[in-house]
């Protein structure tokens, strides 16, 4: 009896605890401050909700675009290599080779503003000011023949702009259009014959299976070894190098990308890599005049690329923090030793 009673109490207390734990609100978390919300809440909607006050012009946009975007997306938004196209493609959507760009496909201009602001330039996201984003957005419209060169875009005229393809989207209708058809389960003699009509080997685009026998971790950037250098600093530098990875590679099979590969960069003459064809005039000239990459020259260049080499095609704002810069240089020198 006593035992019974005590387990009854345990039951009650369990029950109380349980219901307490699950009744909401739980009082978890804390109120977000005004500044916290405005730091993160950067999204823009087609109806203009979220759009900050500001403005920008095609003319300013052209300069910003050339400096920050053209190295990947091309001077005319045509897209270099496999980087995305941003302009053109009109009247192609119903063709065999549709080209989807801001002008030909995107339904809303707000998406351009929002995306460029949150994600571009690639590898240096959220570095543009609001006015700069207005200018670049205006310029992308210009590249798509949607406005003249004297156009100015601002929060005031933003909602008046309509993109040509807005009306050509409709809601998912698979349920009514398709799912009703896909409902028969035939088990026998479902068709007369099955003849091969297409084969993958004809195309031969499947990647070869690479040899992974000696190193499962064959990432090209992972080959850094320490040779009487500061291991911790190199590790830190490797992290800083992420800022460069959108354009530069280091490692055994490193290829040129938007920028030249940086293998053996210590001791290399500036602007002289033979298989990299995209150097600016000035970097080549400075190389011919004797600029060699070492701790001092690299530090000055990476701290402020455009100041050190005017007209450089390296669209990078520079690394201002001295500890980051020091670690990065250590990393670059470590990769030089082993290569």
């Amino acid at each position: 009896m006593l035992k019974c009673l005590s387990s009854f109490f345990i039951l009650i207390s369990l029950f109380v605890f349980y219901s307490f734990a699950y009744s909401q609100p739980l009082g978890l978390g804390r109120p977000a401050t005004y500044n916290e919300v405005s730091s993160w809440d950067i999204d823009i909607r087609p109806d203009g909700k979220g759009l900050p006050v500001g403005s920008g012009s095609v003319i300013i946009g052209e300069e910003l675009y050339t400096d920050n975007c053209a190295s990947c997306h091309g001077d005319f938004g045509e897209g270099i290599d496999r980087w995305p196209e941003l302009a053109g493609g009109f009247d192609t959507l119903d063709s065999e080779d549709p080209v989807k760009t801001v002008g030909s496909y995107w339904p809303y201009l707000s998406t351009v503003w929002d995306y460029v602001h949150r994600a571009m330039p690639f590898g240096n996201a959220q570095s543009l000011s609001n006015d700069e984003v207005y200018s670049i957005t205006a310029y992308i419209m210009y590249l798509n023949d949607l406005v003249d060169e004297d156009f100015e875009l601002s929060n005031l005229n933003f909602e008046e702009v309509r993109l040509p393809n807005e009306q050509n989207f409709y809601q998912d209708n698979r349920e009514d259009l398709e799912n009703v058809i896909y409902s028969k389960r035939c088990m026998k003699d479902c068709k007369k014959e099955a003849i091969i009509t297409k084969r993958a080997v004809v195309l031969d685009v499947t990647p070869e299976e690479e040899d992974v026998s000696d190193n499962s971790n064959s990432n090209e950037d992972d080959i850094v070894k320490t040779v009487s250098l500061d291991a911790k600093l190199i590790k830190d530098g490797e992290k800083v190098f992420k800022k460069c990875k959108a354009c530069h590679r280091i490692g055994l099979n490193a290829k040129n990308g938007t920028g030249p590969h940086l293998n053996n960069i210590f001791g290399r003459v500036a602007g002289q890599l033979e298989d990299y064809k995209k150097y600016s005039k000035n970097i080549k000239k400075m190389g011919q005049e004797g600029l060699i990459w070492n701790t001092e020259t690299l530090t000055s260049f990476i701290e402020n690329p455009k100041k050190y080499i005017t007209g450089t095609k390296m669209n990078f704002k520079g690394i201002k923090k001295s500890d980051e810069l020091e670690a990065l240089i250590e990393y670059l020198s470590a990769t030089t030793i082993i290569n």
Binding site: I44, R45, D47, T111, D114, Q171
Partner: peptide
């Protein structure tokens, strides 16, 4: 309202041969 961001307009919409596109095919 929905935001119509890049991944639900430029990408992840289904272009039909008539040039029109299905969206919100989740």
């Amino acid at each position: 309202k929905p935001w119509h961001h890049r991944e639900e307009t430029s990408k992840y919409t289904d272009l039909f041969s008539n040039g029109k596109a299905r969206r919100f095919t989740w």
